[in-house]
Design a binder for these strands. Structure first.
Length: 625
DNA sequence: CAAAATACTTAGAAACCAACGT
DNA sequence: ACGTTGGTTTCTAAGTATTTTG
C-alpha cells in the first residue's frame, strides 16, 4: 500500500546556520523537573535541613528555567506577517514516526475456534488481537461493530483460515485478552528504574521526531506518531464501527523507517502540514501538524478571535437585518434568517450535509430535520416555544426548550408544513449559501464565528459580576463563567463512573472538618474564659491566639472544600476544557487575572499557557473583547 | 453549478501521571 | 510505601469551510 505526501525541505545550508537558541530548547521541558528528583533518590537519607535547602534550590532552578524559557520563546506576534498564503520560508523535519511492526504471539497464547487451537498467520492474528484487546469494551457487544470487524478480519485471513473461520461466535479470544491485560498490569507494576528507562526512550523519540525547524525556530509537532492500525471506533451509532483501520506504510513495508520511500515529497509553503496520508475506513485525509503552541497555530487562533471581535462591532446591524429577512418574500432568505437566528441565539453549529450511511446520523443548524424540533404555542407558561432534540457533533444530544419570537415561530410552522419527519427543515438552505451571505456582510464571517463571538462575549459579561474577595471564590466565579459558556455550546461529558463515590467522599471529609471546626471553636471559647479568669496571663494569651489561628485555618479549609464540592457538582455533566481551549478569547482571561490579582496558572495549565503565549504576552488589565 | 477533495479546527474518551491522604 | 484520585496529555474522530474538479 502506498501512502501519500510527505513534505521535506532540504535547504541544508540554512540548516547549518540554524539559530543556536534552538539547541537550548531541547533541554527545557520534560527533562527539567526530573533532575532534582533523581538526586533525591540517590541520597535518600538526608537531614531535613538539607532537603529543605534542596527544595529551595530546586525552586530557584525552576524559576530560572522558566525565565530562560520565556526568553527563548519565539515572539512571532511581534514580527511582520508573510504575504498572503505563505505559511513559512524554511521547514525541516524528520518525517513521521511509524509504530513498530507486529510480532507474533508467544507460542503458549492461543486463539480457539470452535474449541480447538488455531494458529493464525501474522496478518489475521494481528487483527484478532485488536478485537481481543477490546473485549471489555461495550463496542465488542454491538452487532454493527462485530459484523464490520468480522468482515474485515476475514479479508486479512489466508484462504484456509477463511474457510475454517466462518462464525465470530465460535471464536474464543480469551487467552489473547488475558495476555493483553497481563501486559498492561506488568507495565503498571514496573519498578521506578524500569519506568525511567521507558520514559527516557520515549523522550528520545520525541526529541528526534517530535520537533521541526520552522523559519529558524524549533517547533513542537502535534501528532508526529503515525496512527497505529486498529479497529475503527466511531462515536454513537456509527455504521463503520469495528472496521479495520489499516497500517500506514510509506512504500515498501520491509524497509526500516530510515529507508522509507515516500509517495511524494512536496515543497508547498502555502500549507501547514508536514505529512499526510489517506485513511482507509472513511477515505479521508489525515495530516501531521504542529502543536497548538506553534506560530502557525497561534497566529490562526489570534486571527480567529480578531474576526469574532469584528463581528462584535457589527452584530447589532446583522441582527436587525436577519430580523427583517424573516419577513422576506424569498423562501431562501427567510430560511437563512431563521437559521441565523438559531446560530446566533443558541450557538448552534453550521450543519454541513453528510453522506448518508457513511457516518452516524448527526445534524447541525442547516441540516436540522422536521423530526428534530417540536413547536409549542404554550409550554410552561411561555409562548412560542421550540423544543429541540437532536444529536449534534460526536453524537452529543442537544435538548433545549427555547421561547422564540412570534415571527420565527410562524415561519417554522410554515417550513414544517406538508413535510415528513425525515425531511429537511431548511430545504432551501445549506452551509455554503449561508456562509456566502455572511461573508458578504463582513469579510471572514462564517457561521462558526458566531459561536466564538457568543462564547467570548458571554465569558466577558459573566466575569463582570461583583468580584468575591478570596482567591478560591474568585476561581469559583471564573469557573461559573466558563461553565455558562460550556452550557451555551453544549459541551458535555459522561459523568465519571466514580462521580457519586468521590462526591460522597468529599462530603464526608467536609462533615469531618465541620466537627473539627466546632471542636476548635469550643476550645477557643474555653481558652478565652481562662484568660479572663486569670487576668491576661501572657502564656494564656498566646494559647488564645493559637486557638484563634486554628479556628481560622479550619474555616478556610472547610470553605475551600465546600467550594470544591459546589464546583464539582455543577461540573458533573459539563466539560469546560473545550470552550476554554477553542472558544474563549484568552485575552479576556488574562486581563481578568490581572484585574483580580489571580495568578495565571490558577486558570491555565502549562500547555494552555504555551498555547496562549501570544495573549499572555500582549494583554493588559484593560483588555476588552 | 454541485460534488469531491483538501485543509484545518473542534471534540470527548482514554491513557497517563503526579500529588495526595492513609 | 502505596493505592486512589483528579488533572493533564494523547489520541484520533468529527466537524467547518474553502478549493478544486467535472
Amino acid at each position: 500500500m502506498l501512502f501519500a505526501a510527505l513534505r521535506l525541505n532540504m535547504k541544508l545550508k540554512e540548516k547549518d546556520e540554524a539559530d543556536p537558541r534552538t539547541e537550548n530548547n531541547t533541554k527545557e521541558g520534560i527533562k527539567k523537573e526530573k533532575k532534582p528528583k533523581k538526586e533525591e533518590a540517590e541520597h535518600p537519607v538526608t537531614t531535613k535541613k538539607k532537603s529543605k535547602e534542596e527544595i529551595e534550590a530546586a525552586k530557584a532552578l525552576k524559576i530560572k528555567k522558566k525565565e530562560e524559557e520565556e526568553q527563548q520563546r519565539w515572539r512571532w506576534w511581534e514580527e511582520d506577517k508573510y504575504e498572503d498564503g505563505v505559511k513559512w520560508k524554511f521547514l525541516e523535519h524528520r518525517g513521521p514516526f511509524f509504530p513498530p511492526e507486529y510480532q507474533h504471539l508467544p507460542d503458549n497464547v492461543n486463539f480457539y475456534y470452535n474449541g480447538k487451537v488455531v494458529k493464525l498467520g501474522l496478518a489475521a492474528e494481528e487483527v484478532a488481537l485488536f478485537f481481543a484487546q477490546m473485549l471489555d469494551h461495550e463496542y465488542t457487544t454491538k452487532d454493527v461493530f462485530r459484523n464490520n470487524f468480522f468482515k474485515d478480519w476475514r479479508k486479512e485471513m489466508t484462504l484456509e483460515e477463511r474457510v475454517l473461520i466462518s462464525d465470530l461466535n465460535k471464536c474464543d479470544f480469551q487467552e489473547l485478552h488475558t495476555m493483553h491485560k497481563e501486559k498492561v498490569e506488568a507495565r503498571k507494576a514496573m519498578s521506578k528504574e524500569e519506568k525511567l528507562v521507558m520514559k527516557e526512550a520515549n523522550q528520545k523519540i520525541v526529541e528526534e521526531y517530535g520537533f521541526c525547524i520552522l523559519d529558524h525556530h524549533r517547533e513542537r509537532i502535534g501528532n508526529f506518531k503515525i496512527e497505529p492500525p486498529g479497529l475503527f471506533r466511531g462515536r454513537g451509532e456509527h455504521p463503520k464501527q469495528g472496521m479495520l483501520k489499516k497500517r500506514i506504510q510509506s512504500e515498501h513495508e520491509w524497509l526500516p523507517p530510515a529507508g522509507h520511500h515516500w509517495k511524494e515529497v512536496r515543497h508547498d509553503n502555502t500549507v501547514t502540514w508536514l505529512a499526510s496520508w489517506t485513511e482507509n475506513v472513511q477515505g479521508s485525509c489525515k495530516y501531521v501538524m504542529l502543536n497548538p503552541s506553534s506560530k502557525l497555530k497561534g497566529e490562526k487562533d489570534w486571527e480567529k478571535y480578531e474576526v469574532a471581535r469584528r463581528l462584535k462591532s457589527c452584530v447589532n446591524g446583522i441582527r436587525q437585518q436577519y430580523q427583517q429577512d424573516i419577513k422576506s418574500k424569498q423562501m431562501e432568505t427567510r430560511q437563512r434568517a431563521v437559521a441565523l437566528y438559531f446560530i446566533d441565539k443558541l450557538a448552534l453549529r453550521a450543519g454541513n450535509e453528510k453522506e448518508e450511511g457513511e457516518t452516524a446520523d448527526t445534524v447541525g443548524c442547516c441540516s436540522l430535520r422536521v423530526e428534530h424540533i417540536t413547536l409549542h404555542d404554550l409550554l410552561e407558561d411561555k409562548e412560542c416555544v421550540v423544543e429541540f432534540d437532536f444529536l449534534g457533533k460526536d453524537c452529543i444530544r442537544y435538548y433545549n426548550k427555547v421561547p422564540v419570537t412570534k415571527r420565527v415561530f410562524k415561519n417554522l410552522t410554515l417550513f414544517m408544513k406538508n413535510k415528513e419527519p425525515g425531511d429537511d427543515l431548511f430545504d432551501r438552505l445549506n452551509t455554503c449559501l449561508l456562509n456566502k451571505h455572511l461573508s458578504s456582510l463582513l469579510p471572514g464571517l462564517t457561521a462558526k464565528v458566531f459561536r466564538t463571538f457568543n462564547a467570548s462575549i458571554t465569558l466577558q459579561e459573566q466575569l463582570l459580576s461583583p468580584s468575591p474577595t478570596s482567591n478560591i471564590k474568585k476561581l469559583l466565579s471564573y469557573n461559573r463563567a466558563n461553565r455558562a459558556v460550556a452550557v451555551l455550546c453544549n459541551h458535555q461529558r459522561v459523568p465519571p463512573k466514580t462521580f457519586d463515590q468521590s462526591m460522597a467522599n468529599l462530603q464526608s471529609k467536609i462533615d469531618g472538618r465541620r466537627e473539627q471546626l466546632a471542636l476548635a471553636k469550643s476550645e477557643l471559647k474555653l481558652a478565652k474564659k481562662e484568660v479572663k479568669a486569670h487576668s491576661s496571663d501572657s502564656k494564656l494569651q498566646a494559647v488564645v491566639e493559637r486557638k484563634k489561628k486554628a479556628v481560622q485555618r479550619c474555616e478556610e479549609q472547610l470553605m475551600k472544600m465546600e467550594v470544591q464540592a459546589t464546583n464539582r457538582e455543577e461540573n458533573k455533566q459539563i466539560a469546560l476544557g473545550t470552550s476554554k481551549l477553542n472558544y474563549l478569547d484568552p485575552r479576556i482571561s488574562v486581563a481578568w487575572c490581572k484585574n483580580m490579582e489571580v495568578p495565571l496558572d490558577k486558570i491555565y495549565n502549562k500547555s494552555q499557557r504555551d498555547k496562549f503565549a501570544w495573549a499572555v504576552d500582549m494583554t493588559g488589565a484593560d483588555f476588552i473583547f
